[in-house]
Simulated scan of single mutants.
Amino acid sequence: MSWNDFYRRRNALLATLDWCERNPGEAIPFFDLTGIDEAFIDRADLLRAMQYRWLLLLAPRIELALDQAARRPDLDRVGAVSGAWHELADAEPTLRRVLDQYAEVEEEGLRRPAAAEQRLLALAAGLVEPDEPAEDIVRIGAGFLAMVREQQPERVEMQPCASLWRRRPVTALLRRLMTA
């Protein structure tokens, strides 16, 4: 991909998000928006680019939240990761809404990028180990993501733990709930 292609795709993606912000809930008119059909093969390609943008914005937020949690032993990883996800959802509401809107409709086109988000969340929250089977990591990450989405954003913060020994039972409980 050349730099011209990169900028064309980025500008088309940003123009689409701008249109989606002005027209919430409406289907993206892929062929009616100028430049989108030149930058992306189809709607699924556009949505994969949006999911990739989400991941690019999410990963550093999670890393920062985990760094803060590591400096304060009274804070847990699960709360840090949840807080980072909600912080980004608050900062990028249109992007999150579009991804959620098309998650069911374009399931096949977004399955792999969504699995990447689920893996990132499960590993960062410490719910799984990297050497566990990939299917298990994705399944646990999907369960964790569902729980994160259900939380009220104003209540999501890095929650204090009384001591380090309490983290393991909480993690084990979350894993059991997500695999049930």
Rank of each mutant, 00 (worst) to 15 (best):
M1W: 00
S2A: 02
W3S: 08
N4P: 06
D5M: 12
Y7L: 14
R9L: 10
R9N: 04
R10W: 11
A12I: 02
L13E: 11
L14H: 13
T16Q: 05
T16N: 07
L17S: 11
L17N: 04
R22Q: 09
P24V: 09
P24A: 03
P24C: 04
G25W: 02
E26W: 01
A27W: 00
I28R: 00
P29V: 01
F30L: 03
F30K: 08
F31L: 09
G35T: 00
D37P: 01
A39F: 02
A39V: 05
F40A: 03
I41A: 09
A44P: 01
L46G: 01
R48K: 11
Q51D: 13
R53E: 11
R53V: 07
W54R: 15
L57H: 09
A59I: 09
A59D: 10
A59L: 12
R61E: 14
A65M: 02
L66A: 07
D67Q: 03
Q68I: 05
A70R: 11
R72H: 14
D74K: 13
L75K: 15
D76M: 04
D76F: 04
V78P: 05
G79E: 08
V81R: 04
V81E: 05
A84P: 06
H86V: 03
A89F: 06
D90C: 08
A91R: 14
E92M: 10
L95E: 07
R97M: 09
V98C: 00
L99H: 01
D100Q: 12
Y102D: 06
E104N: 08
E108M: 11
E108K: 09
L110R: 04
R111Y: 06
P113S: 07
A114Y: 13
Q118D: 11
R119F: 09
L120Y: 07
L121F: 03
A125H: 04
A125L: 02
L127G: 05
L127R: 02
V128I: 08
P130F: 03
P133H: 11
E135W: 08
G141K: 03
F144D: 00
F144S: 00
L145I: 04
L145F: 12
A146P: 07
M147G: 05
M147V: 03
V148K: 01
E150Q: 12
Q151M: 14
Q152N: 15
V156F: 10
E157T: 13
M158E: 05
S163F: 00
L164I: 08
W165T: 00
R166H: 13
T171E: 14
A172E: 15
L174S: 06
